Amino acid sequence: MAGRWKHPGLIGELAAEFAGTMTLILFGLGVVAQVAGGGIGDHDSIAWCWGLGVMLGIHVAGRTSGAHLNPAVTIALAAFKGFEWRKVAPYATAQFLGAFVAALLVRWNYTEVLHAADPGLTIKTQGVFSTLPGNGTLPVSEWGALRDQVIGTAILLFLILAVTDAAGTPPAANLAPFVIGLLVVAIGMAWGTNAGYATNPARDFGPRLASFFTGYAGAFRDQTGYPYFWIPIVGPIVGGLAGAGLYQLLIGRFLPAAAPREPGELPTPDRAEATRG
């Protein structure tokens, strides 16, 4: 008979965040490389595969770390849900590293395809690894992209808290990863035009850095030459705080307290925060 489950400690949590984020990015970047480099698939296949990647990443890391997989999520949970601030920087670092390693693997595996589609490794295939305003082709300004990232990530965090709040109406039978995956699909289909729905600083900066180190000299700039890299970092953090705060203001503070849970544990229908802001 298995013994009582023991919390793995911070090292275990960081390993889970690394592995979960890596899983997410392997599927997310892989599908974009297939579409942009090989011409196989379309926008819908990209949206669905990103959602599936999120779902699988949550399954990988959920029990151990809570499967944040996103610095914007980690910061918002620290601000509004009692996650320990001392863990925010280590979690974010693990997430960035997981995304960076996954991007290197995708870059390596799709080397022939990417060089055939874009021999100069230009803005044409830069979108495989990092987001661009208007997806590199539409007339969306950098400030329009920042607005988009704030709004899109606010929606993401508002609904993640709604789905995982044990005092609300969470999915039964551990279906939260599936529902959150569907949420990402929906955001991709409804909010993907203006800025590629990064909604995750690790998802964008880790692969952006990996692409820079592997031949994409313009990785930190957009199609106009603007140093765009900061927008998918700042926008999601601001939007995540706004979305989580709005959830607490409109919904969370009116719900009854539920049973306490371990910090970082993935919320389930029978365990949640004992206190609310």
Score class of each variant (00 low, 15 high):
residue 246 L to G: 03
residue 62 G to L: 02
residue 96 F to S: 02
residue 90 P to C: 04
residue 107 R to W: 13
residue 193 T to A: 13
residue 160 I to Q: 04
residue 133 P to E: 06
residue 156 L to W: 06
residue 226 Y to M: 09
residue 142 E to K: 04
residue 256 P to S: 09
residue 148 D to F: 10
residue 250 L to R: 09
residue 90 P to I: 07
residue 30 G to T: 12
residue 31 V to L: 02
residue 235 G to F: 00
residue 18 F to K: 00
residue 6 K to Q: 12
residue 11 I to Q: 12
residue 260 P to M: 06
residue 246 L to K: 04
residue 231 I to G: 01
residue 205 F to T: 11
residue 48 W to L: 14
residue 205 F to M: 11
residue 212 F to G: 04
residue 147 R to F: 14
residue 181 G to Y: 12
residue 258 A to H: 06
residue 99 A to D: 12
residue 91 Y to R: 04
residue 253 R to W: 00
residue 22 M to H: 01
residue 160 I to M: 15
residue 207 P to S: 13
residue 80 F to M: 07
residue 66 G to E: 03
residue 95 Q to G: 08
residue 276 R to H: 09
residue 190 A to D: 06
residue 151 I to Y: 03
residue 121 L to Q: 12
residue 59 H to K: 09
residue 124 K to Q: 13
residue 68 H to V: 08
residue 16 A to W: 05
residue 142 E to A: 14
residue 92 A to R: 04
residue 252 G to K: 02
residue 112 E to S: 15
residue 71 P to K: 01
residue 170 P to Q: 08
residue 83 F to W: 12
residue 121 L to M: 12
residue 241 L to A: 04
residue 271 R to C: 14
residue 190 A to M: 08
residue 18 F to G: 00
residue 161 L to C: 07
residue 72 A to E: 05
residue 70 N to H: 14
residue 118 D to I: 05
residue 195 A to P: 01
residue 129 F to D: 01
residue 250 L to K: 08
residue 161 L to T: 00
residue 96 F to M: 12
residue 143 W to G: 03
residue 174 N to F: 14
residue 41 G to S: 06
residue 88 V to I: 05
residue 217 A to F: 00
residue 259 A to H: 06
residue 57 G to L: 05
